[in-house]
Design a protein around this nucleic acid. Structure first.
Lengths: 343, 343
DNA sequence: CTGAAAGCGCTAACAC
DNA sequence: GTGTTAGCGCTTTCAG
């Protein structure tokens, strides 16, 4: 593979001139530049990133860390690819590359900072961590490692993050359900410590806040916990709901779409009228919510934008003396048969 | 960030000794080694990848190129993430990293070899290219760039590839349909030049081969072409099929799952008996094939394995004087209501 | 067993 | 405008 020296020789100049041409500096005679450019083309010269990066201390590469566990979830696949897409878009815009880490695991003590410490990347994006280990956070702070966290809000002021307005969306869910004439509101969330999710928590908090504001009778609200976030749990929950008798909720906020889809499946078989008997809304706006009939209403996450903005925050964080920043993006209500657009 | 020099100073040795410890060479006194190791820990020293790679001409990184277009397809997302998962697994096993390219585009003249030419990676994996541009292939051959192609078979002996046995699966599809008592077999493929897909072509070829072997009456086979690979096309095809009258196929092989899922949706609404009136099978075994009722029979692709094996081929290709290799992995029939397991 | 010197490919700083 | 020198962090080769 050709180096600057080879190009220099062919063009009859010194290698430093080649460097100047490659970097677009203007102190090169037009004629020389043309000669060098031709040699570059002929030899298919590409600047060696290693030499350049070693010299400048910049790699032109971001690292993306995401725990393996998250990917095995069907949901994880969906949202991960969407976020990645946004990250890549920003990388393309700024001519950066992206290393997808193959090591991150939340439980095992894999070194999620390795890519940075090895100078393989200039900064790190964390996706889908329920929580980042305390000693990692500490290292990040002490060594000023540029990091951005997506979809969580680490309790550490030196780390930037991008998240969505889950509180506001939970609130909006209740508003829409009440506007649709529902007044017995139930929340379906999961209750597994290791799957604890700040976002789901926030949705619940927002919904409850709105109920409080409305001064709704406490007996007209309920919180149901399920063991998992899958379809099967949603189906099972339907039967629980069905057996609640007259006081059962006529409006439901599901912690995510999969639960709601499972619920729908069971409800249809049981002949439930939707949304007359019960109206509900999920979260994430997964494609399969559109496949099931009746179609699921849901709150769409701006996954792509989250990724894109995260990289921008990372860029800012890499400026000298830049402060970490925090960004919350809105969720978008997507009407469906289970909760139509308000009139 | 600490360098070998810093560690050396702290441990009271020369930096070369640090290098030896880091690389696990044995010509270091036990006592010195321990001192160095402690200094490494204290300073959180990690070897700088840039220095090391520059020196050794090895980056310890693979590049993955996949055209942006493919990702926007729903199918693309699914299979891409599954293949990536296999690639990552292999990378983890071998302590390599992975750059996901943000540039590859099949049509535009983006430089898909850039990562290699810049020495950012040691070799490239191509996923989901319908066909790699001729000039790219040429460069790969001339400069001996280590490459592996997944899910296509480039017509160039210097490029390794991993693909699946689509011909055999197409054949198996016909065998299973005939075993199920069907004898009027139809194939549903797409007919768009820019979406030409070698794999779909092979499935058709395999099916036809089996029909020939059976000596089936030519009038009992048909090939239908559709414009796209989506659900909508599948629905539309159902009505085409329904209007074919008495001679319509009672066994169908769909080019992919989405077509079959669309077909199912329309068939159910029309009250078609499945698999009595018509049995059929798709390809790819997408999760949503399991969601629809009746459940779709399909051929599952070993996506993860494809990714894993591709990286292994790439490793081999990077050995001195290694020949390119080719690998075809079997598809696995996954029974469903639309074509149950043979008795 | 340990160290000194050279060089990987590149760019910044300083001559000419 | 162009070239020379030094150095980024590391490993390899050769001395001690």
């Amino acid at each position: 593979m050709a180096t600057q020296k080879d190009v220099a020789q062919r063009a009859g100049v010194s290698f430093i001139t080649v460097s100047r041409v490659v970097n677009g500096l203007d102190n090169v005679k037009e004629e020389t530049r043309l000669r060098v450019e031709e040699a570059i083309r002929e030899l298919r010269y590409h600047p060696n990133h290693l030499g350049r990066a070693l010299n400048q201390g910049k790699t032109g590469t971001w690292g993306v860390e995401t725990p393996i566990s998250i990917r095995s979830h069907f949901w994880g696949e969906q949202y991960l690819i969407a976020i990645l897409d946004g990250i890549e878009r920003r990388c393309r815009d700024t001519h950066q590359d992206l290393i997808l880490s193959t090591e991150a695991s939340e439980n095992q003590s894999s070194d999620v900072l390795r890519l940075y410490r090895q100078k393989k990347v200039d900064g790190l994006v964390f996706i889908g961590f329920q929580r980042i280990a305390a000693h990692v956070i500490e290292e990040i702070r002490e060594d000023h490692i540029p990091c951005v966290v997506i979809a969580e809000r680490p309790d550490e002021p030196s780390v930037s993050w991008v998240d969505t307005q889950n509180f506001e969306a939970g609130l909006e869910a209740v508003v829409r359900l009440t506007q649709a004439g529902k007044n017995k509101i139930g929340f379906v969330v999961h209750d597994q410590a290791e799957l604890y999710n700040f976002n789901v928590d926030q949705r619940l908090a927002g919904g409850l806040a709105e109920l409080n504001r409305l001064g709704a009778d406490k007996s007209l609200r309920s919180i149901f916990t399920v063991n998992d976030l899958g379809e099967a749990e949603g189906e099972a929950f339907f039967y629980r709901w069905q057996n609640l008798g007259r006081n059962r909720p006529d409006g439901l906020v599901f912690g995510n779409d999969l639960l709601a889809i499972g619920f729908t499946r069971a409800a249809i078989e049981a002949g439930t009228n939707i949304p007359q008997d019960v109206a509900y809304v999920g979260f994430d706006a997964l494609p399969q919510g559109r496949w099931v009939r009746p179609q699921l209403a849901s709150f769409a996450q701006p996954f792509g934008q989250m990724g894109y903005e995260a990289v921008k925050l990372l860029e800012q964080r890499c400026q000298k003396q830049a402060e970490p920043r925090f960004l919350t993006l809105p969720l978008t209500f997507q009407p469906g048969d289970t909760l139509p657009q308000s009139p």
